[in-house]
C-alpha cells in the first residue's frame, strides 16, 4: 500500500519546503524549538496533504476533520504547514514572534485561521480532543479528530486520564499521533521517567496502537489506514528524530533551545537543497 511515485515526490518536496520555512522562522525570530518542529514535519505534511479532510479556504467547514497540535511549542511547524497547504498566507510567517506580528511562539486560536485550539502547556490536547470526538459522536457527525503529542508530553498524568476515558466513550473517530523522538526538555524520556513498553500501555487501556516510522510516508500511510479502520480509538506511535533533516541538529538536546544563527541557516539550507 505504498504511495505512487509522483505522490511520493510531491510529499517529499512539500516536507522540504516546510523545513525551509521553519528554519527561516527560527532564524528570524531568534526563538527556540527548531528541533521539536523538524521532528514533526513529515507527520504534519502527511496529515495536511494526505489525511485530513479540510477546506483551506473555509477552516470552519462543519464537516472538517479536527487537528489539535497538543505540543504547542511545535507552533512553527504547524504555521509552516498551514502556509504550505494554503490555509494561511505565507507572508504571515514573516511576522512570527516579530514586534506587533501575528504569530506567537505557542498556539493561540485567535491568531490565525486553522488553529483549532490554543496550546503551549503540555498534556491538554488529548482531553480536549476526547471532548470534541465525543461531541461529534453525540451529534452523529462523521468528522474525525487527530491530536499530535510529544513523547515527553506523555509523562503528564492528564494524558493517561484522557486515555482511560476515550475507549469507554467508544471514540473510533479519534487518532493520537505520538512524536517519539526520545528527547524532551532536559533529557531523554527513556532515561528520566520512562513509559516503556509504550504501545502495550495504550493497548492495555483499550486502544488500537500502531507503530510507524514518522519520517516515512508509506509507513505513515499504512498506520493512518489502520487507525481509520479500527473501531477503537487509535494511537500511532511514530518513531522520529528530533531535528530531523539537518544533520547537526539531529538527536541533540541543545536544539530544543538553540537559536538558528545566519551561519546555521545557510549550512542547514545547503544541506536541505543538496538532499
Amino acid at each position: 500500500m505504498s504511495l505512487k511515485t509522483e505522490q511520493m515526490v510531491f510529499a517529499i518536496h512539500k516536507a522540504m519546503s516546510v523545513r525551509e520555512k521553519i528554519l527561516k522562522m527560527a532564524n528570524r525570530s531568534k526563538g527556540a524549538h527548531v528541533g521539536s518542529c523538524l521532528s514533526v514535519v513529515d507527520i504534519l505534511t502527511y496529515l495536511y496533504f494526505k489525511e485530513l479532510r479540510i477546506r483551506p479556504e473555509d477552516t470552519l467547514w462543519e464537516d472538517r476533520d479536527y487537528f489539535l497540535m497538543s505540543k504547542g511549542h511545535g507552533a512553527m511547524a504547524l504555521y509552516a504547514v498551514l502556509a504550505e497547504r494554503g490555509v494561511i498566507d505565507e507572508k504571515l510567517l514573516k511576522g512570527y514572534m516579530q514586534e506587533d506580528g501575528t504569530l506567537p511562539a505557542h498556539l493561540d486560536r485567535f491568531s490565525v485561521p486553522g488553529i483549532e485550539v490554543s496550546a503551549g502547556a503540555l498534556g491538554h490536547g488529548l482531553s480536549i480532543a476526547v471532548g470534541i470526538a465525543h461531541g461529534l459522536k453525540l451529534r452523529s457527525k462523521k468528522n474525525r479528530v487527530f491530536v499530535l503529542m510529544g513523547d515527553g508530553e506523555c509523562q503528564e498524568g492528564s494524558v493517561w486520564e484522557a486515555a482511560m476515558l476515550a475507549p469507554k466513550l467508544k471514540l473510533s473517530n479519534l487518532t493520537v499521533i505520538v512524536d517519539l523522538n526520545d528527547l524532551q526538555g532536559y533529557g531523554r524520556p527513556s532515561e528520566l521517567v520512562s513509559f516503556y513498553p509504550f504501545a502495550e500501555k495504550w493497548k492495555a487501556f483499550g486502544w488500537e496502537a500502531v507503530e510507524a516510522d514518522g519520517h516515512n510516508f508509506d509507513s505513515l500511510r499504512s498506520a493512518f489506514t489502520r487507525a481509520d479502520r479500527s473501531s477503537l480509538p487509535s494511537v500511532i506511535i511514530a518513531k522520529t528524530v528530533k531535528g530531523k533533516g539537518i544533520s547537526f541538529m539531529e538527536d541533540e538536546l541543545k536544539w530544543h533551545y538553540f537559536i538558528v544563527t545566519d551561519e546555521h541557516l545557510s549550512a542547514a539550507l545547503m544541506e536541505l537543497k543538496g538532499a
Binding site: A105, H106, S118
Partner: peptide, 9 residues
C-alpha cells in the same frame, strides 16, 4: 518575560 511565547507561558 517570555513574550511573545503566548499566554500559556
Amino acid at each position: 518575560t517570555y513574550a511573545p511565547a503566548g499566554m500559556t507561558h
